[in-house]
């Protein structure tokens, strides 16, 4: 298997998982036919050709390096939905969203030119892997399963599953970052409202 095929196969996992989750919907009951059908339909949709290229290839021209964190979180969500098991507690999800929000707030504004300092460069140095490892160890020590997810950027990076050789791309991508910021803001907003309503009681 060529390195390029490996990159493509890995890059297909995130859109396939996301599409499968969309097709499964939010209904309480999932038949086996619905599950298998949704997983295959997602695969079929990604292979639909548009102007000579498959939907997946168009997606890849937009984002060739989905992060290992996003791919793993989508896989966890899919497994939870399909297997009806709770792999992640609300606290684990919360850690995932706050980590994603913080990482993207550090990376994107400065990485896109806000300052003379470019944090993206740290992805080619030892600083970022050490920082992510410290966060992962702290989360694992606190029993948070998102810490385990943070092992995957290291494994994927060492295996060379991504086109990128920058460790930032293993940890975060704009879709995970953008989604994490929105959800983290939602969690904060809910917290503020809850605190306000408690005060008014």
């Amino acid at each position: 298997m060529s390195l390029q095929t490996l990159h493509h196969l890995y890059a297909a996992l995130a859109p396939w998982s996301a599409l499968s989750l969309l097709l499964l919907g939010r209904g309480p009951y999932l038949s086996r036919v619905r599950i298998v059908g949704s997983l295959f339909l997602a695969l079929f949709v990604l292979r639909i050709p548009i102007a000579g290229w498959t939907c997946f290839q168009w997606v890849m021209s937009l984002e060739p390096n989905p992060s290992f964190t996003l791919t793993a979180l989508l896989a966890v969500a899919l497994l939870q939905r399909v297997g009806r098991v709770q792999l992640f507690s609300p606290e684990d999800w919360k850690a995932a969203w706050f980590f994603g929000a913080l990482a993207s707030l550090i990376l994107y504004p400065m990485g896109l030119g806000l300052t003379s300092m470019d944090p993206y460069v740290l992805g080619w140095r030892f600083v970022l892997p050490v920082a992510v490892a410290v966060v992962a160890i702290v989360l694992i020590l606190r029993g948070n399963r998102f810490g385990l997810i943070l092992l995957l950027p290291f494994i994927g990076f060492l295996l060379g599953l991504q086109e990128s050789q920058n460790f930032w791309d293993a940890v975060i991508d704009p879709f995970y970052g953008g989604g994490a910021i929105l959800i983290a803001l939602g969690i904060c907003w809910q917290g503020i409202r809850r605190r306000k309503s408690l005060k008014s009681l």
Partner: peptide, 22 residues
């Protein structure tokens, strides 16, 4: 699990340092 994490982080740091001088 901690040992695995430390090993993985060490391997990534070694890879970065090997190619780019750290």
């Amino acid at each position: 699990m901690m040992a695995v994490m430390v090993l993985l982080a060490g391997a990534v740091v070694w890879k970065e340092c090997g190619e780019r001088g750290g």
